[in-house]
Design a protein around this nucleic acid. Structure first.
Lengths: 201, 201
DNA sequence: CGATGCGAGTGACGTTTGTCATGGGCAACC
DNA sequence: GGTTGCCCATGACAAACGTCACTCGCATCG
């Protein structure tokens, strides 16, 4: 019997997937979490075989949780189920020791299959995704550039960003200009979109 | 027996919810669609009691489909299930004659309940949502301002937006400035975020 | 028929961004 | 111990953006 903890912030999706997996004779849902922090607690308390988790959740992302599990050398193996095919997400997932990664776009049938493969010690990453991650370049941004971009995305001016990051406005301008240059963008908005699409923010 | 067509672009969520609803003795899924256009075709072909649909989908949004059904006076009643609590979405849904609206955040149990209520001729809209829609202001943007804002969001310059909309750059500047003024934003980025959060784009 | 509102445009002005050169401090890595 | 890369900063210039005032055509509505 494969014991699973499920983490997903949309209650309806959480419930639907749980119901679906519980119908499989060899799978059992031992815990459900609506955010990353709760998921981490549950995994520590229950030591399931598999953590099946979304990425974008409150408090801690699924990637954060996977990283924490790897750091603490817990035996639970992580399978990511996410909406986004962002290459950076996949790269970070692999770096966090994630063994399974699939999109919510894929048919439900593959979900149980992925869980069984990973539980048995294997790896489950769709070929298209693996390929896109391979050809994807690595994040060219420095931490401060990322900080500035995140705030710029929200429509803050250089002056406001400078205040938040405790920098001079000129430095912020430079960071954003550098970031746009690295990303091949013509301005901060485009730079933000590109960085986000790649999973770098 | 309540006959349902389900529209949802994420295959896994589609499959999971379909499986869940099919377990209910009085509900039956007669068709599934992965985008709005397919959903509309299916409803026309099958004349189900209920169309259960997401909003954000390729080709046609769930709101577009609901509007088309209302225009053609089809008997099928629409229930919206979406990630977003944007007041503008709810307002447009009501205008399109939608009788049920719920968030993917709500527990699965409410889904079947909502479907039964709407199938019986009732209305199902959570109190919190109805309240937020009530206090929400109406979309203050003109169609051209919306056009300009959508392109500005993508990082296009005034010149590029002007070319796409076949306007002069000065006019585009004015539209975006007007839009920002109406929305209380300090620049185009913030204006875009506010408009999107309200469901006006 | 006049008022209103929207689309479209111009010109001007100041502010904000984007770009570039250049410099210093600091940590990491041969 | 030098080189490299990141962080932080400044100054200067050009380009893009935000704001305001004002005009025109046109459709719709009272």
């Amino acid at each position: 019997m494969i014991r699973i903890v499920l983490a997903e912030d949309q209650a309806m999706v959480l419930g639907a997937i749980a119901a679906l997996l519980d119908m499989e004779p060899d799978l059992t849902i031992v815990g459900r979490a609506a955010d990353g922090a709760a998921a981490l607690d549950l995994v520590r308390a229950l030591a399931p075989d598999i953590l099946l988790t979304d990425i974008e959740m409150p408090h801690l992302t699924g990637l954060d949780v996977a990283l924490a599990l790897a750091d603490q050398r817990l035996a639970t193996r992580t399978v990511i189920v996410t909406t986004f095919a962002r290459p950076g997400y996949l790269a970070r997932a692999r770096a966090a020791g994630v063994r399974g990664y699939l999109l919510k776009d894929t048919p439900v049938e593959q979900l149980a299959a992925a869980i069984r493969v990973v539980a048995a010690g294997g790896t489950f990453i769709p070929a298209e995704l693996a390929a896109s991650a391979w050809e994807a370049s690595v994040d060219p941004l420095t931490p401060r550039e990322r900080d500035a971009l995140r705030l710029a995305e929200e429509g803050l001016s250089n002056k406001e960003i400078a205040r938040r990051l405790d920098l001079s406005p000129g430095t912020v301008r430079n960071y954003l200009s550098d970031a746009a240059g690295k990303l091949g963008a013509g301005n901060r908005i485009e730079a933000g979109r590109i960085a986000r699409a790649n999973g770098w923010l």
